[in-house]
Computed example of a mutant assay.
Amino acid sequence: MSSLGVSFTDPALETRVRAGVEQVEVQLAAAVDSPEKFVAEAAAHLLSAGGKRFRPLLVMLSAEFGEAEHPDVVRSAVVVELTHLATLYHDDVMDEADKRRGAPSANARWDNSIAILVGDYLFAQASDLVSDLGPEAVRIQARTFSRLVRGQIRETLGPDAGDDALAHYLSVVADKTGSLIATAARFGAKMAGVPLDVQETLTEFGERIGAAFQLSDDIIDVASETGDSGKTPGTDLREGVPTLPTLIALRSTDPESERLRSLLGRPLTDDAELDEALGLLRVHPAMTEARSYVQAEADAANALLAKLPEQPAREALQALCDTVATRLG
């Protein structure tokens, strides 16, 4: 699992987690299949493009605090990953993206209508599977889906006049990213029969570490050099997408930041302006403040782990917190 940045100190744990994630892959392929050839092809499009499977990994690690081998653990991981994949189809339509995981997005390969319908199909498949996990699992999934949609709506509408743009953005990240990662941790623990207090701790951990990973991507988009992170630096700036560093920089009132503030908050389609904005933002105090915020979130997540029984799975979760710090550079 080195691609996920997870350090396993226990070979038996690594073997179990790898086996679990491999089972998820098999069941994912079965879940997206369909007798209709086109539906099967379109639904498997992003699945075939790969991905880190961070959410199934978190399901597996959370289950380690109970009966990790319970078959519902893998099933719940499939539900979470199907839900995640469905949101990617819809996100690419909302963002008018033409690439996803290095491949043409579904909306670029076909069209927006197909991408939306395939996303709906994947949500339906996830709903079908979660119904086998019991009414409480259905309720958790429904509430998670509600948060995902509310987050997307608020992101699309933007903050209301007079709202704090940074607070609005952080709440969107919590709903669009933190909620599903929290559910991954909750499902893994719940399906493994973990005590309720440990379930709650793992759920809160998932929420915090999920937001921290998403926000660290904001920093990487600015700080990385071409090729370092697998994505072109300044992508969010070019598209005018608000991120943690840019929103912090826009709050600054010092005269030295006037030029940077004039560049931020709008798409920078001109290469010269984009390079100028990247240069100014990389040395701006906003980057230090953004790194500190993300580190604080990772530290808060790490502190929660002290409530958990001491075992190799806890060490692996601590390694996820360390990965955030490593990503910040």
Rank of each mutant, 00 (worst) to 15 (best):
L280P: 02
S7M: 12
A185Y: 10
M191D: 15
E96T: 03
L196V: 11
E81Q: 12
D98V: 06
S127W: 05
R208Q: 14
H84C: 03
R314Q: 13
K231T: 04
T288F: 07
L250N: 11
S48I: 01
G102Q: 07
I116N: 11
L308G: 05
S229V: 11
R259C: 05
A19F: 03
E64T: 00
R143Y: 04
S62Q: 02
N107D: 13
F213Y: 11
Q214K: 05
A30C: 01
V73S: 01
R208V: 10
R100E: 13
L202D: 06
A212W: 06
N107G: 08
R266D: 03
D132C: 04
D163N: 05
V79L: 07
L85W: 01
V73G: 01
G119F: 02
D270R: 02
P195F: 06
A42M: 04
A19G: 04
E67N: 11
R251D: 13
L58G: 12
D221A: 09
Q318W: 08
E64Y: 01
A189C: 08
R101T: 12
R100N: 15
V6D: 12
A97N: 05
L202A: 07
L82W: 08
M94E: 06
G227Q: 13
V241K: 15
G193M: 08
V6P: 11
A19E: 07
H90V: 11
Q141L: 12
L264G: 13
G265E: 09
D92P: 09
E315R: 06
N107I: 09
A189V: 02
R251P: 09
T201F: 11
S3N: 15
V130I: 02
V74T: 05
I116V: 15
E297Q: 14
D217K: 06
S3M: 14
S34M: 14
I248S: 10
A142F: 03
L117E: 10
